[in-house]
Design a protein around this nucleic acid. Sequence first.
DNA 1: GTGCATAGATGCATGATGTGCACGAATGAG
DNA 2: CTCATTCGTGCACATCATGCATCTATGCAC
Lengths: 218, 218
Amino acid sequence: MAVGTQVAVESDAGTGRRERKKTATRAAIRDAAMRLALRDGVERVTLEQIAAEADIALRTFFNYFSSKEEAVVAGAAGDFRAFVAGFRDRPGSESVLRALHEAALVVLDQAMADDRDHLAALVVIRGERSLVPQLLAALAAQETVLAEAIADRVGPGQDEGYPRLCAAAALAALRVTLDRWLESAGAGAVPSLDGLRGELERTLGALAAGLDRPSRPE
Amino acid sequence: MAVGTQVAVESDAGTGRRERKKTATRAAIRDAAMRLALRDGVERVTLEQIAAEADIALRTFFNYFSSKEEAVVAGAAGDFRAFVAGFRDRPGSESVLRALHEAALVVLDQAMADDRDHLAALVVIRGERSLVPQLLAALAAQETVLAEAIADRVGPGQDEGYPRLCAAAALAALRVTLDRWLESAGAGAVPSLDGLRGELERTLGALAAGLDRPSRPE
DNA sequence: GTGCATAGATGCATGATGTGCACGAATGAG
DNA sequence: CTCATTCGTGCACATCATGCATCTATGCAC
């Protein structure tokens, strides 16, 4: 490898060649899984194919992921982690939901700037029922982390249950918003990012304003 | 069978012996899976054991569930469905969140009155990481149904995204509340149902009042 | 009741998944 | 260079999951 080979996406724990190789292998597997799943459908791809595509032994696959689904979802899961990490970095002047909103926008921008196709993962997942559980599990894992971050942000001595409730509701809101956006994509190509931004604004606004509604009088 | 043999929990589609046998078999498998999972741990139970316990052929298992996890989670999934169905039955005089709250209380009461151990499922699931995805998937499935029910309740022409957002946030809130309650159970026995009721009240109240909070000034 | 059409249960064969174990090669530390 | 550790790999094995063919029970029409 020459000097400035390729990019340095993801969290390349730059310490030592070993670590670098590991993250590279992990990325290779993830991308291979995604590529094949996109081409043939998740169900019709075998681990053997993925291993071959990533140029590793079948047995090695399990050193990185415990199932095919986990590998395919890994990309999206990484974005979730980035989102939560981004939330932590928001200035304390922003309220909780404001910070969540801004963090979401930052992740969106990063995803667009990145070469990897972040949309592909979501599109595949939406189309394949078997991936939903894994995606939700990845989301739930971040929910715990996010709850801690929220607890740190609002400080102690507050409403005991607020952090987890807020984390769960916020992630649910983001999930629904993203889902509706992808749905509206459906036929056409990428439907304006601005539409997504607007939806985000409205959704989180609704969370802030309160979710109750009267029933239809009739 | 004599006159009043046993109970009639679940949704015994009472039409014909065939349907009755099917639901009975399904329940037998579900209960067998739960019993064995509770005794030995989900991972250490094989489908063969479950099939033997439920007195069916291994192959037959797959006529009812597509995986061991699905069978174990089936009980909880049924409660979710009951909850959403109960929501539909709430009078139109109640606001959306009010109706959700009442429906939750009704399901709780039913679960307590029932002979089947509804808590067991949740306890097992909490303890076994591999079940989380399946549970979340079951919840997500009901999220769609709930969103439709909410849409019907508030009537058309409203905020386009409200039903799904509300459904997702409400189910997330219920999940978190239940989880916190089970967590607090931990050591001791069943920690007062009234505690759970109170938590529910506060959680849904928070959803109604709005979730934003200022960050810690410091 | 008789006979038919269909749904469900079962067995068999087979591919795919996932894990424990052991060995060898690459890596990093001294 | 030497050693300890980590990681990749092959092998064996149990389990999971599905498609196909077959057999049986059920429901229905008459």
